[in-house]
Design a binder for these strands. Structure first.
Length: 274
DNA sequence: GTGACCACCTGGCCGC
DNA sequence: TGCGGCCAGGTGGTCA
């Protein structure tokens, strides 16, 4: 499933494929994907716009157009593919952007969880959804003091809180397990009970894990691949996630899987004792 | 403000 | 072999 490194990989791939292309028409085949505005307005406003740049904020892709930003969240299995207009539609292709050069960018999403917003350029960071996002992992404002302040009232397990996109963006279930393992932090520990040393480890290992994952093109688990079927290689580096019953790479204890607030969580009971 | 729970959605997997 | 039920997951909404 796309987390920050996967979105970064998709962004870079798309920049090579659709930059400076002008939208001739838009087809919305499953309107629930379009969160804002109504799909008929979404289509009308997109026609004639050119894709001038593609950025990323957290797990959101930001297509910079002439007058708008098209925001796209891939959620679980969203992906983009360049197609020929003559290609038949896959049943999971829900939105199609037709370009003036006779190519198409199609949004495919097996589970239909992905969402798109069309936001006026001036409102990008003051309106939903970007105004509710926390700090990027590499933001210099991400410090122990920042996390102490954000976590002081959080009684939930750190595994739950580290996924909170209003504090740090980009961490999903896979990387949360890896970050907590590298930080020797038990996923059940209440966020408010973490000391400064543990918070610093979370910051350092978040940056380390996500940087490494981006270098390797992200992680491909189960059905997820990025644009054009590019497979990430970081899954080979996963130390605990998806390793239930395997030996811990550090202490050789058995890695266990538990549920924390409904999320599958993999960890080593011996190494992760803080 | 916070936490718990549910809905969204479909393919894969498992047990019968 | 076929069927039913459960699971996976990120996010937003509702309610206490």
């Amino acid at each position: 499933m796309p987390e920050l490194p996967e979105v970064e990989t998709v962004k870079e791939t798309l920049k090579l494929q659709v930059l400076n292309k002008k939208i001739k028409n838009v087809k919305v085949l499953y309107s629930n994907i379009i969160e804002y505005p109504a799909s008929d307005i979404f289509i009308k406003e997109l026609i004639g716009q050119t894709i001038n740049d593609i950025k990323r904020r957290g797990k959101w892709l930001l297509f910079e157009l002439d007058n708008y930003y098209l925001l796209s969240h891939l959620r679980m299995e969203g992906k983009y593919n360049i197609r020929n207009p003559k290609d038949s539609y896959d049943k999971h292709e829900h939105v199609c952007f037709e370009f003036t050069d006779n190519t198409e960018l199609r949004y495919k999403d097996t589970r239909k969880f992905g969402r798109m917003h069309l936001i006026c350029k001036d409102d990008l960071y003051t309106s939903k959804p970007l105004n509710e996002l926390g700090l990027e992992p590499w933001d210099e404002l991400l410090t122990v003091e920042y996390l102490k302040d954000k976590y002081k009232s959080k009684k939930n397990p750190i595994k739950t809180v580290i996924l909170d996109q209003s504090i740090i963006v980009g961490i999903g279930n896979i990387y949360a397990d890896e970050i907590l393992f590298l930080s020797n932090i038990n996923p059940f520990t209440k966020a408010s009970e973490l000391d400064g040393e543990s918070l610093q480890k979370i910051i350092d290992n978040t940056r380390r894990v996500l940087t490494d994952a981006i270098k390797m093109g992200g992680t491909t688990i189960r059905t997820y691949t990025s644009s054009e079927g590019v497979h990430g290689r970081f899954q080979q580096n996963l130390l605990v996630h998806n390793h239930e019953g395997d030996l811990c790479p550090v202490c050789k204890n058995i890695i266990v899987k538990v549920q924390i607030n409904g999320r599958g969580t993999y960890y080593c009971e011996k190494c992760q004792n803080n």
